[in-house]
Write a protein that binds this DNA or RNA. Sequence first.
DNA 1: CTGAAAGCGCTTACAG
DNA 2: CTGAAAGCGCTTACAG
Lengths: 331, 331
Amino acid sequence: MSAPRAPRLDDVALQAGVSAATVSRFVNNPDVVAPATAERIRSAIAATGYVPNMAAGALAGSRSRLIAALVPDIAQSLFNDTVEAMIEKLAEEGNSVVLALTGSDNNRLDAEINMALARRVDAIILTGIVSDPETRERLRAHPVTVIETWGLPDDPIDVAIGFSHRAAGEEMARFLRGRGYRRPHLVVPRSTRSERRATGFVERWLRDGGPEPTRLEVNVPSHFGQGRLSFRALSDLEEMPDVVVCGSDWIAQGLIVEAQAVGMRVPDQLAVTGFGNLRLAGDMRPTITSVDVDGSHIAREVIRVLRARAAGEAVEPRIDVGFRVIARESA
Amino acid sequence: MSAPRAPRLDDVALQAGVSAATVSRFVNNPDVVAPATAERIRSAIAATGYVPNMAAGALAGSRSRLIAALVPDIAQSLFNDTVEAMIEKLAEEGNSVVLALTGSDNNRLDAEINMALARRVDAIILTGIVSDPETRERLRAHPVTVIETWGLPDDPIDVAIGFSHRAAGEEMARFLRGRGYRRPHLVVPRSTRSERRATGFVERWLRDGGPEPTRLEVNVPSHFGQGRLSFRALSDLEEMPDVVVCGSDWIAQGLIVEAQAVGMRVPDQLAVTGFGNLRLAGDMRPTITSVDVDGSHIAREVIRVLRARAAGEAVEPRIDVGFRVIARESA
DNA sequence: CTGAAAGCGCTTACAG
DNA sequence: CTGAAAGCGCTTACAG
């Protein structure tokens, strides 16, 4: 038994007694063929075991149904919920997601953008910031749909779906001030967005008459271990803060564990806030006050933008999905 | 200025004064063209801004350079390190990874397998177990390379890269017995692999003369919050265990936090072990005794298998990458 | 609602 | 080391 060639559109057409064009129409849009024809094609597909060749479809047609998602990493990323929601929703519509990792290296980003363009993806979704102006310009010049997520730059490459990190920082400052805290300390991951939140926090805090917050910078990706180290670093400060504003829930969690290990009570002796509202924030003991970003909401907007583009409709360049401070026990 | 058509192979060929075939050869294998020709092509590519169309390449050639990775989820998955390592290594060789989410639903798995076949991927990498016999048979009948990872089934669909979960369970039993623990309690996620580890643990424990371990089953994906609940459930047991063997580091971490919250000392009053050796295991306080699975090793073997297949060489159907118990403070 | 035919942009024996 | 030419399996105006 020699390897039998995989069935093609032609084989199905022959079996169903119609032309290849009609089978193609049925596969892509079942409603446009007559019901009786549809039925014959359906059984011919079943009989032959036909699986469309999407590479051929992409070449002949105008869309690849392939979406590139470029993310810094997936091992420890606040974006995972968003990426997961996007992949699920895109899959429901027959799209596939090519996931590419860029780290925080612009060369890798450039290489992965080229790969995405070579694959003729229908859209490139960026989660993480493209800071290099040349790369931004190159993408802008290209006809492909580019969606920046999780941020809201003043001048998006194409369309941005996210929220203002600065506003999130401001809102946290307002919240903590309202709770009566006096001496905040910031633990800031070295990423553009974290820094923007920190800026928003400090500006608002100072404007409201508070003292200049102290701060510690940490590397990305942020993780649990940094929380522990960040707590120990507090002893270097002239005065102990009454609340530590952490750049991620992982850092907050680690900091709480370390504080408790030396017998300090959270939030009575030291309050803590996180960012991202990961599941663990609600499960930690004490539960962690955090900022929620609705990944499903972002994913829904991505779908909406893609649909609009496919239909040739205009899309707003900046879509604000907002954020919410979630007050819990830790601050 | 009308939208200029994207440059094709022909355009580069014309510009370089060679045939399209030669440009194609250069793009795919620079060494086969004469140095002088190569140089002319190189500058023609730069001048035109040519980006190859991989959809056309996939159709004309025999490979798509597209690999499908099917995973249950990415929000909370022990596989993330492995998937990240695979994506990085595959990208270095010019491959892209289509990431598809299957949950624990066989219908979704089937749909994503069809999608992968429709895209004519060069390989399907499964991380998570395919339990449905029909699906296994269907994949086996297909000529595509199928790599099962993280497990070592007796009869792989094609090739499996992983380790024996049963052996990992046995090893943990041996380890804990050696440390003098007497009454283990297992927290077992409802997944085939976790259950296999639990089986291995119990068999070994009983064989060594220990009493039947108690056990609690929890849903997947496992997470921090389950650790807290699992700790509370300990009070329902007739006798308090001296060590809790958790199905993941997240569960272990949550259990430790909850134990400490009620003033219990870990490991003095209650020892705890995890699984997966996530970064947090080494960072937690106390550090968590866990089982390490080397994701990079799995990724390297995936690359090796893919290379061998591309070269038409034979590959062992079962590749054991092993595991290591990492002894730390928690047990 | 359906068919005939051109074309999408590559790769790859084959021949030199 | 290089070129001419066939072919990969679809989609989509165009015409009916």
